[in-house]
Amino acid sequence: MKKIQILLVVLFLLITAATFSPLVIPQGVTEPWLFSMPRTLWSGILISILLAILTLVAAFTIKTEDKKDSE
């Protein structure tokens, strides 16, 4: 595994840890609001976007071993 991929996996784990922490899912807390949405919703959407970007970056860094790709 390349260094960049290890970094991406570490980032994935950190983002996941943040998701299940009171940062994103504090019990009974709605503040602060952003884009008219309560905290868990906007931060959850932000996490999903970050994870999607992480997946996209990871896709660029992984080398494939296709012998011949006709795409």
Partner: peptide
């Protein structure tokens, strides 16, 4: 409520990783 986003939105995107 909105916590369902973690159950659905975050997990499904994490799955693609």
């Amino acid at each position: 409520g909105v916590g369902a986003w973690i159950f659905l939105g975050v997990t499904d995107v994490a799955m693609t990783f």
